[in-house]
Amino acid sequence: MNNLALLTIGVTLICCTLGVMGVHAYSSGKDQQAALVERLSQTGQIPVVGRRRRFRGVDRRVRRTKLGKKLELRIGATGLDITPGEFFIYMTATVVGLWLIGQAMLASFFGPICGLLGIYVAVAFLNWQRQKRIEKFINQLPDLSRILANATQAGLALRMALSMAADELEAPAGEELEKVANQLAVGHSIDDALGELADRLPSRELVVLVTTLVLSNKAGGTVVGSLRNLTETLEERKETRREVRTQLSQVSMTAYAVPVIGVGSLLLIDNMQPGALDKMTGSGIGQICVIVAFALYAVGFAIIRRFSKIDV
């Protein structure tokens, strides 16, 4: 009996050991495979394979339109891993969902209004992602300018300095500079590559940096002194932008609170007196009043947002 127990324990230990060894070998093999695929992808021996794209037929049709081309450029500026076709499908689903929710919670008249709100939400989401990416890039500009100054002072050419900055900086600066480095590698000029970068992420700080690099490259002079001064200026502008954003945060919240209060009051009225919204929107005068009220909310939102937008 004791021998049977010892045999069982021994077999169990051997199985556990073999299981641990198998998991370790599997994980090591996966890491080696990923490293090999990455190395071969960088050398161009195998194509780069990303995630599987959905709605390919819709994506091809959307890309053919003029609006689809603009949408593709806007999505590219956000850094999102999504195709125009996928965004169109998701936006359509959002519109339909908000339409049904508006009809169910408010009244049938509010369905189309909520559907239009879905389109605005989708476009606003892209603008928000794009602006957030631009803000992150602006915050990285002092480090970028410092790296370029150090690389130039060490005797590296501007092309090599941009490639080195692309390797050292994190996203989004690293990704954008990698695109610039790839364009330079296939024969694009520095003016064109940096100009496209400024078009993708428009900002005053980036325009100043690009102008400094382009003029210094054309003139053939050193850019170390200019980049050093630019680094200090960008640091000061970074702090100023942070202070301005903090001071105006309450105004920005007010812009979003005003329409939310309006929609909340409608829900409160319908909850206190069921069917009140159906009666209100059952006549032409009521519908006109609702449309005018929503238009005034939209105008108030735009005005408050304009007050809170200060270019530094």
Rank of each mutant, 00 (worst) to 15 (best):
F87T: 01
D191V: 07
T65Y: 12
L277Y: 03
K70F: 02
G195Q: 01
I9M: 10
I285G: 02
I119K: 00
K66E: 13
P259R: 01
G284K: 12
A295N: 05
N182W: 07
E239V: 05
T43I: 10
F294R: 13
A165Y: 03
L209T: 06
A255Q: 01
V123K: 04
T222I: 08
E38H: 09
G264W: 10
I113C: 04
T231M: 10
E176P: 01
T83P: 04
V292L: 15
S283T: 15
R245L: 11
F110M: 14
E235A: 11
I261S: 08
R241W: 04
L98E: 01
Q287E: 11
G22L: 14
S28R: 11
L36I: 07
M272R: 06
M21P: 01
G262D: 01
A124E: 10
T92W: 03
V121G: 05
T65L: 13
P202Q: 04
D270T: 10
A149L: 06
L144W: 03
A25H: 08
C114F: 15
Q140L: 07
V312H: 04
L6N: 13
K136C: 09
G68T: 00
A165I: 02
T17Y: 15
R54A: 12
Q129A: 10
S145W: 11
L36F: 15
K279T: 15
A93N: 07
M164E: 13
I89V: 15
S28W: 07
R39S: 14
L296A: 15
G85K: 04
R63D: 08
L4I: 12
R305T: 02
L296Y: 09
I304Q: 02
V210M: 05
S283P: 03
P112Q: 03
I9R: 08
S308P: 01
R60S: 14
R56Q: 11
I119C: 09
L73I: 12
Q273G: 05
D59L: 08
V20W: 08
E176W: 04
S163Q: 14
L71P: 01
L213Q: 03
M1Q: 14
